[in-house]
Each structure stands twice: as structure tokens, then as C-alpha cells.
Amino acid sequence: MRKMTYGEGIREGMRSKMLEDPNVVLLGEDVGPYGGTFGVTKGLWEQFGEERVRDTPISEGIIVGASVGAAATGLRPVAELMFIDFLTFGMDGLVNQAAKMRYMFGGKISVPLVLRLPAGGGISAGAQHSGSLEAWVTHVPGLKVVYPSNAQDAWGMMLTAIEDDNPVVYIESKVLYSKKYQVDDTVAAIPFGVASVKREGSDVSIITYGKQVEDALSAAKALAEEGIEAEVIDLRSLYPLDKEAIFASVAKTHRALVVTEEVKRGGFGGELSAMISELCFDELDAPVVRIGALNTPVPYSPALEAYVLPNTDDIIQGIKSMF
């Protein structure tokens, strides 16, 4: 075991695939000598050179679109957009091209690209640099979407993402980048569609991913002192989705709370909640509770931002409301 930050986990995943496969290339704004806005690609330019770690113009359309063209012709590009919010300029390449090409072309073209998207609030970055937009991409057939919550998963899921023959949206939590985690000495690829039970419990299932995993664990710890045992499920992969893990947990606890950082309206949390209500109705002793951000852009001022985003206490209150 060793200690490693979340950002380092992402980097080590990329590094090991780059060592294995010369067709793995990185591109994005400031990913070269600068090492990435959040330092994730630090050292890779020095190790692999200019041809494999390419700084691009500030031009998200071509970052995504060129990745599509390169992926369709033999490369395995890993593209970074500086913030998930900048996906708007790269959206066509992702949703109209990468996601649909295999299908539109009758299964004859693969687009094995990875799009890294730093997401989430909590650093006073304001409304255009703090988005949680996973619902935009989980909504699109043809994309796989993953959202690791710790360094080990970040590493193992990056290996899987780069090996995958489909476009993978790899969402990263900005506030976790510098957090340290215990990581195995060798990390194997973590298959998509397999959730991780972070804490077992008998009374309520907390279903979440990304940064909210640690909030959920804090909430579970506090609730245990009051005699409520919460099970915490880290989905890790939003599509494919480990429905069995969700259903098994709900069948055990008979209560479910879904917590995500996104604006609650139209969020992926709504999809999870609806799915549990539809398919596990007979198992439920209480309506599914959904926790998310308020339906606002993310504000700048720290107190406002903290007020808008969901926190541990919201989870605790949400769970108490079910009993």
C-alpha cells in the first residue's frame, strides 16, 4: 500500500496505458509542460514528449472533434477539458459524433476516446467553472460515464476507460484532486458497471458517487451514533449502471436516499430515484429521498456556495425524514 492523491491516481492510470500502447495520446489545454490546470498531467510531457502530450489552442470544439477523428482512425486519445462546463463548446463532437457514430454506421466504426471532465463546486470558482453536468451525458446513448471517488478507483477506472472501444466520459471531482488515499501497489483495471459497497448497513441505502461518497460516509458515521445503520453504495460507473447492487441493497434496507451534487431538477439522481421507485416499489418502506444542489447556478461567495450545494447534514436530515 502507498499514499497517493486522487489526481495522481488519474495520472498513474494514464501513464501505465501510455507505457503499454503507443496509440494512447493526451491532448487538451495546458496539459503539456504546464502539467494541467489541476496538475493531473504533470510530468507526462517530460516522459512521453510533445507528440504524445499535446497542448491545444483554447478550442474545445477541436479538442473533442479531433479526438473523434483520431479515435476513429486508430488512436486512443485521452482529452482533457479544463472544466466540465466547457463541454458546451465540445458537445457536438461528443453527443452527435462520438456517441452516435457506431450506431449510425451500423456498428462498423469504433470511437475509443476518453474525455476527462473536472466537475463540481466547492472552490468558489463561480457559475461557469463549478458545474455538475453528468445528467447531460448519462442521457446520451452511446456514451459510457464514470465518476471515481478515490485514487484507487481513479487509477483502475482510467485503465478500463482507455481500453474501452467506446467513448468514455470520465468525470473528476475537483475538490478531491489533492486528497490522499491508500492505494494498492499494483492497480488492476476496474470493470465498469460494478458498484462498490463502501459501508455495510441494515437500515437505509445511500446511493451516490464522486465527492458525495465521503459526505455519505460521514453521515453514516453520525447516524450510527443514533442507532441508524446506513449502507453506502459508490456507483463509480453511472453508465453502465450496477442496478443489481442498488436493488440488492434496497432489498436489504428497504429505504433509499440518492445524493448527487448536481442541480436537483432533471438530474441523474432523479433517474436513480425513479428507477428504484419503479423496480423496487414493493421493497420500499418509505419514498425514495433525493438530495442535490438547489436549482440555481453555483454562486461565488463561499457561504452562498456552501448553502446551495448539498452537504453531510442534508444527508442526515434526509435519512431521518424516512423513519
Binding site: 479531433a66 479526438s67 473523434v68 477523428g69 483520431a70 476513429a72 463532437g93 459524433q97
Partner: peptide
């Protein structure tokens, strides 16, 4: 435009 450029890069 973008895809052709990406293929050329490849």
C-alpha cells in the same frame, strides 16, 4: 471539419 482534422492528426 473537426473529424477530418483529427484523422489527419492520427
Amino acid at each position: 471539419h473537426l473529424i477530418a482534422t483529427g484523422a489527419a492528426w492520427s
